[in-house]
Design a protein around this nucleic acid. Structure first.
Length: 797
DNA sequence: CTTCCCTCCATTTTT
DNA sequence: TGGAGGGAAG
């Protein structure tokens, strides 16, 4: 290991940054405003610790996302090549500890990790087994209550003794049953990873001491998002060696609804009286214009720590606040603006991001962008690992790894269909429950299940035989095992029968890709080629991380997903009452303040340019309703912002609604309810044919209707109308068509040709599904491609 | 047991 | 508006 020289590390850091970096022993709280170079400070500090001859294995850096951990590792590697600091998510940290100490909590070391849908499934079963009526609580609600309880380290027996709401009472009855079933299945859910480890540390002082000793320097990122379980873990590891340093910003806490406890950061100074507190308040990201808006807004929160954000950046353009007639106009206008900026070479697609409160709001944007041939990506669309065919194949593997994985068994026992119906499964389940054995075991003893028909017994037995054939290969390389699953189970034939198109979003293509992921894994882990490790990887690495900033595409995402990112130009849409402070968040102050922080996070993503917009009405769940502006808008420095009432008039409705309005609009009382009700009969889309454009309308061009725009956009038109050519991409429409080789053809070492860069060799492939990426070495350097969209030809092996 | 249709539901979602 | 899950028919 190369210990970097400490002087070099401190160069180019501001005074507060230096102060944080040079802190070695004792607790430290870094209050880091948005864009204040937080990651830089953390990585430099780790490098500094190493330079002070602290062994790398004594340091652990905990993050919430894999993405953050990867980023940190990458940057640290540049400062201190070859170090072996433990870096990763809380969940992975716990998963690894739990592998080792599984027996102490009643698990075996090959335990399975249930993902959210697995756990829902299990919860459903537990609810049935608990025999409680579900009229007062949906499975989702029960799951929520239990998850929250786990995050607060509340065990089933403790919960039972508490004062509870009706919903919680139901959940309290399900909880112990659910936990027992998980244990029987040798499985944990995401929350359990934390819960088990927290309990372990609490109940075993020896182990706690040992681990405290081992991880002497602990760094936690995004500390404002920790829940009680995480807090307890970190605390337990910082008693004898309280060298805990946490980084966070109370103003960016937006996961309270998932159990994050703002008190952890607000009270950190109370927990550790000797704490050193460092404030990073200089912002390197945004213009003063953007920053002032953010600051004014967040000042309205009461539960926070005062910060003084400032920046040396250029003033930039004023923040825009824009008011549209409806969601379609909003989408069209934004898309038009993006097209204009791109085609006049002022910006590239990846300079833009569009944020919204709800995923469903991206739909009209997608439509508008697609119609104009603007390439875009939606972060958190359908995830690869959530697809049915992938879950199916993985379920077989889960079952091989852990025969107790009942959720997996339920999933595959009749997939592909082999004549084992719901009734049969239910009976097996009941038998398993009454004997306290896994369902697979019950299936083996099918003939002992009295309620089962002869025919069913035969079918079940047949399934067990198939399973055994697969399980016999458990220790084979993953690729082989996976192919075996697909063949033996008959899944390949099943897929072929059900797949019509052979492009890469087809089930067959996806399974192919899963196999190629297995190949990658085999290659990277030649020695321990373990199924267990692969499954853990899959469970803990979601593909949300695969957001690609170098891709030439506009990014659409929720405000939540935007945290930690930055973009030159940002649009935040739907800044409306009941949407941005969401309707369901208005009951208590804590939630309301969290909504405000959400907007704060969105605003502070913008580097140079920002537009907030709201509409007079918006279609929500099928019907169009009048809408009023968000109360948060009143809290912004309106006088210095550029306010625009919709400029482009589009003929969405058969008649127009109050275009007069003129002049400045008064935000505080945007109450259009009355006008609209007076003017009700709008019913867009439906009557457009009857009401052919009048001369008046035609004069006021452009007046394409929403549908017309979409219809007209044939690929040719798209080309002429918009972006000539952006980087290595032409238009999205271009790329979506045409014959491309299957994604699995791209492997490490494959020679490919790109029409711009010439021939190159693939250095690495990562990610799955539409997010699969390749790093390619060309004569003039390395380039990254998203395989589903890249124009790459396969030349050699 | 499977399939198809209808009804009901609908923030946010790092792991 | 759209998707997922439950119930009735083949």
């Amino acid at each position: 290991m190369d210990a970097p020289h400490s002087d070099a590390l401190l160069r180019e850091l501001t005074a507060p940054q230096c102060e944080a970096v040079q802190h070695v022993d004792g607790p430290m709280l870094i209050l880091a405003g948005p864009g204040s170079g937080k990651t830089r400070v953390v990585t430099h500090r780790i490098a500094y610790l190493l330079s002070q001859n602290i062994p790398d294995w004594q340091i652990a850096a905990l993050t919430f996302t894999n993405k953050a951990a990867d980023e940190m590792r990458l940057r640290l590697d540049k400062l201190a090549p070859g170090q072996k600091v433990w870096m990763g998510t809380f969940h992975r940290f716990c998963a690894q500890l739990l592998r080792r100490y599984a027996s102490m909590v009643g698990l075996q070391e090959n335990y399975s990790i249930y993902d959210t849908s697995d756990s829902k499934q299990a919860m459903k079963r537990a609810t049935e087994a608990a025999g409680v009526s579900t009229t007062h609580a949906s499975p989702d609600q029960i799951a929520n209550v239990i998850s929250k309880a786990k995050n607060k380290l509340i065990t089933p027996d403790v919960m039972e003794g508490q004062m509870l709401s009706p919903k919680e009472t139901v959940a309290a009855k399900v909880y112990p049953v659910y936990q027992r079933q998980l244990l029987t299945a040798n499985a944990v859910d995401f929350d359990d990873l934390l819960l088990h480890v927290a309990n372990l540390l609490r109940h075993s002082p020896e182990l706690r001491g040992e681990l405290d000793q081992r991880f002497r320097y602990i760094l936690v990122d995004e500390y404002q998002d920790t829940n009680l379980a995480q807090y307890a873990i970190v605390r337990a590891l910082s008693i004898d060696h309280p060298n805990l340093s946490v980084t966070g910003d109370p103003d960016q806490s937006i996961y309270g609804w998932r159990g994050a406890d703002l008190n952890n950061i607000l009270d950190f100074e109370k927990d550790y009286p000797s704490v050193k507190t460092v404030r990073l308040e200089q912002n390197y990201r945004s213009t003063p214009n953007v920053l002032r808006v953010a600051d004014q807004l967040i000042r309205h929160n009461r539960r926070r720590k005062q910060k003084n954000l400032f920046t040396d950046n250029d003033e930039g353009e004023p923040v825009i606040l824009r008011w549209f007639e409806n969601g379609y106009e909003e989408a069209d206008s934004i898309a038009d603006e993006i097209v204009a900026a791109i085609s006049s070479d002022l910006a590239r697609p990846n300079d833009f991001a569009i944020f919204c409160r709800m995923n469903s709001l991206t739909r009209s944007l997608e439509h508008a962008l697609r119609g104009r041939g603007v390439p875009y990506q939606i972060v958190n669309g359908v995830e690869f690992y959530q697809r049915k065919e992938i879950k199916d194949v993985l379920a077989y593997l889960h079952l091989v790894n852990n025969p107790g994985h009942d959720v997996a068994l339920t999933r595959v026992i009749n997939t592909p269909t082999r004549g084992i119906g719901a009734k049969t499964v239910q009976r097996i389940q009941a038998f398993a429950d009454s004997h306290n054995i896994p369902m697979l075991e019950a299936a083996r003893r099918a003939e002992q299940i009295e309620s089962l028909a002869k025919r069913s017994v035969t079918m079940v037995k047949k399934f067990v035989t198939i399973y055994d054939r697969i399980a016999a290969r458990a220790t084979a390389p993953l690729e082989e095992l996976m192919r075996c699953v697909v063949q033996e189970s008959g899944y390949d034939k099943f897929l072929e029968k059900n797949s019509d198109d052979a492009d890469d979003s087809s089930p067959l293509g996806n399974v192919d890709e899963l196999i190629s992921a297995a190949v990658d894994f085999d290659r990277r882990h030649p020695d321990d080629g373990s199924l267990e490790a692969f499954l853990e990887q899959v469970a803990l690495v979601s593909d949300t991380d695969a957001f690609e900033e170098n891709d030439q595409r506009v990014t659409l995402m929720t405000l939540h997903a935007s945290k930690g990112l930055e973009f030159p130009r940002v649009f935040i849409i739907g800044v409306e009452d009941d949407l941005l402070p969401h309707k369901r968040s208005k009951e208590d102050d804590a939630q309301f303040e969290e909504e405000r922080r959400l907007l704060f996070v969105g605003i502070t993503r913008a580097k140079q340019w920002l537009q907030l917009s709201c509409c007079k009405r918006r279609m929500i769940r099928g019907d169009t309703r009048p809408v009023i502006a968000s109360p948060f808008l009143n809290e912004l420095p309106l006088e210095e912002m550029k306010r625009i009432e919709s400029t482009v008039q589009r003929n969405y409705f058969d008649h127009d609604i109050d275009q007069s309005g003129g002049g400045d609009w008064d935000l505080p009382e945007i109450q259009i309810r009355d006008e609209v009700q007076a003017d009700v009969s709008f019913d867009f889309g439906a009557n457009q044919d009857e009401d052919v454009l009048s001369a008046d309308d035609q004069a006021r061009e452009p007046a394409p209707t929403f549908d017309a725009v979409a219809e007209e956009s044939s690929p040719q038109e798209v080309k002429s109308q918009s972006i000539p050519e952006i980087g290595a991409l032409k238009t999205a429409a271009d790329l979506m068509s045409g014959n491309r080789p299957p994604l699995t053809a791209f492997r490490e070492g494959t020679t490919v040709r790109h029409y711009d860069y010439g021939e190159g060799t693939i250095l690495a492939v990562s990610g799955l599904g539409p997010k699969r990426m390749a790093r390619v070495q060309f004569a003039d350097g390395e380039h990254n491609f998203r395989l589903a969209f890249a124009k790459l030809e396969v030349v050699g092996p």
